[in-house]
Design a protein around this nucleic acid. Structure first.
Lengths: 191, 191
DNA sequence: ACCGTAACACTAACCGTTAGGGTTTCGGAA
DNA sequence: TTCCGAAACCCTAACGGTTAGTGTTACGGT
């Protein structure tokens, strides 16, 4: 599938990694708002323009680790066992994602995100984009006769569940509670 | 209630109005991204700092007209007839809001918003803030035994309904469809 | 051995936004 | 009526994220 990549691509990946690592370290050390793009670039020993050729924005540096979020959600739909119903599969994946980001090791990062308005907003629009892909995956699922609107609704509800559970006092219980509601909603969806 | 406001407040309101009108006109004429804050300020004959003392950001200029959105939603909950159930009241209000913003007269503005990533993102975070107030209003409603999590979930679902319906081919049908799902979700919510 | 190009660097700006500091003008108290 | 405090406004200068323009290097395929 993937032939041993050449020196070129290895160097590129290394540069990207160095930028992301440096950025996250500086952000955690001094605080997101107190670190400028120019600081990150200097510390990573790259030009500012290079940084922006790897990452579309300052905020994107923070969510490097989170890159597979979108794919995990869509694959939870497209790659589930042939007879597994949709919503429980989604619920399992959302639960796993919530567990992952409420783990103790992730606490400093999420504390940083919650402290910065820019990061919170960025995350939300990111999740919305994810909801769009998820909606497409659900809509494309053969054997689901539901409306396109219903599919988009389900996708957004699932993203909501993730966002709300992350902030809840007991995240795992919140996933259960919200997905109970989603289950009922989906069963009512017209087809 | 409101005594005849003094000259001072009238002038302030006039300035604010002039800025908002000028901004919207320029945005529609030349496109949101093609008009800078300095352009708006110059055309409205105010200093840039004055503009930002009236509006917190460039995006906020566009949503001047939309200012009562939040209040309309919360009042649909807090001010409904004593015996009217919650979700239908919400549905009525969301339907009215969707009708309002899909009216022909509003088309150019919404086309502009949809064309600009900055405006789309701003709108979404704005709606999320609205969802928080709505959740608080629902939570505070006496006689509703539901969980706080369930209230926050309902609030977000209602906001989702608005956003999804706005984009749907048949917005009013979409409101019906989504609120059917929400109704089922809410009935399932633990109390 | 050579060429095309991908990755990177440097400079200089653009744009939204804010701080600092000054001037006018109103509203209410003396 | 007079005067004072403060609100509204202005100007200048900057900050920080982001991008365009233009080279330079070094890798990969011919």
């Amino acid at each position: 599938m993937t032939a041993p990549p050449g020196r070129r691509e290895r160097k590129k990946a290394a540069t990207r990694q160095k930028i992301a690592d440096t950025a996250l370290r500086l952000f955690l050390e001094r605080g997101y708002d107190a670190v400028g793009i120019r600081d990150v670039a200097a510390e990573a020993d790259v030009a500012v323009t290079t940084l922006f050729s790897h990452f579309p924005s300052k905020e994107a540096l923070v969510f490097e680790q989170d890159r597979d979020f979108e794919q995990r959600l869509t694959r939870a739909v497209t790659g589930r066992a042939p007879d597994e119903p949709l919503v429980p599969a989604l619920r399992r994946e959302v639960l796993a994602l919530v567990r992952h980001c409420t783990a103790d090791s992730a606490a400093p990062i999420w504390h940083m995100i919650d402290s910065s308005a820019a990061l919170r907003e960025y995350e939300e629009s990111m999740r919305l984009r994810h909801a769009e892909s998820l909606a497409a995956a659900i809509d494309a699922d053969a054997g689901l006769p539901q409306t396109t609107t219903a599919c988009r609704t389900l996708a957004r509800f699932a993203i909501d569940a993730y966002a709300l559970a992350r902030e809840a006092a007991d995240p795992e219980a919140a996933v259960d509670e919200i997905f109970g509601m989603i289950e009922a909603a989906w069963e009512t969806a017209p087809r």
